[in-house]
């Protein structure tokens, strides 16, 4: 398939992920939307790697995958810890660090 179709799909996926990050209130859903954004980036990397015939894009996508795992571990730990102490995970109502 032509490479630009993959880039278009990746752009649409990134747009959906950004919309989720901006509009959802629940921290869990925001983390899921961040996963969508990272996946969109990986897809674009692999499409360009295929077009250029270069495997270094695969290595970078591999590193992004490991990074996504680390981000999910730390992010979910923060969500659980905030829920334990505040009993809420709405991002609008968590403002302990403000003022």
């Amino acid at each position: 398939m032509p490479g630009h179709l993959y880039i278009l799909v990746s752009l649409a996926l990134f747009f959906i992920g950004t919309t989720g990050v901006l509009l959802r209130r629940n921290a869990l859903f925001v983390l899921m939307s961040v996963e969508l954004q990272l996946g969109a980036g990986s897809l674009a990397l692999l499409a360009f790697a295929r077009g250029l015939g270069d495997q270094r894009g695969h290595v970078v996508a591999f590193l992004v995958m490991a990074l996504a795992a680390a981000e999910a571990a730390v992010g979910l730990a923060i969500v659980v810890s905030v829920y334990r102490s505040r009993k809420k995970i709405d991002l609008d109502e968590i403002n302990e660090l403000r003022n």
Binding site: A66, A69, A70, A73, V74, L76, V80, S81
Partner: peptide, 14 residues
Amino acid sequence: LLLLVAVVAGVLLA
């Protein structure tokens, strides 16, 4: 190394 740090941080935070 980053994954190791993330695991330790996850245990510590949760």
